[in-house]
Amino acid sequence: MVATVRCEEIGNEKVTSFIADEEWQQFEEAVQHDFVTGFGKKLSSLLDRCLSEYDMEAIYFDEGVRSSKRQQLESKLLQLVNPAYQSLLGHLHTRTLEAFKEYFGKALEKEGFAVAACNCTETFLEKFDRGSEDAAIQQVNWDTSKVRDKLRRDIEAHVASVRAAKLSELCAKYEAQLTKALVEPVESLLDSASEDTWPAIRKLLQRETKTAVLAGEAWKECC
């Protein structure tokens, strides 16, 4: 009974001490605003220090009791730091997505659409994975798959949006080219109207439309 009460008291004292720790408070504040490099290593060290202090103070009590209370302490500490961890992942997601958008836009100036989309997606998902590894806490294996999946969906949505915008620009471009290619020849044919005028206009329209369609399909294949 004494061991149970005392080990629990020590555990509660360690939680209170951790919350009041200036280093933790600064760390917690920092991750509210941006991604913090070295998060996992730094936080693991703080948690390890807190748990080690518990071990030193509880060492003379029953092993089963102190082990059970240590697990409770660790659980409380992890619950305490989890919001900061989730905030960090949110910043990692946002930072990675914004970097992808910028890099993808530049890549389109040098590569075909499909190649740029594939390469950039792979590159920035790998960047997210490295960031997740940096954020990993030694004492627990929290799952980051939901955030990673959301990042992939957001990347795919951006790629689809850019593709739609490019196709819209392409349609407008070839529509303007088609109009320009038809206006003068049609006017000329109408000025010298004959029995062959409408067949000639029809043939001209088919030819120019086919040219525009082939150009558009060639771009789509690159997507």
Rank of each mutant, 00 (worst) to 15 (best):
N141M: 07
A157S: 15
E74Y: 07
Y54L: 09
E28T: 00
S168C: 11
E28L: 08
S44M: 08
F27A: 04
E23W: 06
R148Y: 00
V2N: 04
S75G: 03
R49Q: 15
L43E: 01
T16Q: 12
C223W: 04
S44F: 10
N12Y: 09
W219N: 00
A116N: 07
K42H: 13
Q71M: 07
R66H: 05
L182Y: 12
Q72Y: 14
L51A: 12
L108I: 06
W24L: 14
E8V: 02
G131Y: 02
E195H: 05
G40P: 04
E111S: 13
R70V: 11
L89K: 05
W142K: 05
T179L: 06
F18L: 01
V81T: 08
A117I: 09
A218R: 09
I19Y: 01
Q206W: 06
Y85N: 00
L47S: 05
A114H: 12
L46A: 04
K210A: 11
P83H: 02
Q71N: 13
V213L: 13
D191R: 13
Q26G: 12
F124K: 03
Q138E: 15
E63S: 13
L80T: 05
L178F: 05
H93P: 01
R153I: 02
A84P: 04
Q86K: 12
D21F: 02
E111Q: 15
E184N: 05
F128N: 04
S87H: 04
A116Q: 05
D34P: 00
T37N: 07
E102Q: 11
E23K: 14
N82S: 08
D62M: 06
F128Y: 14
E57R: 15
A99Q: 10
E98D: 09
L88G: 02
Q32F: 01
L46H: 11
E184D: 12
W24H: 09
T94C: 03
S161Q: 15
E57A: 10
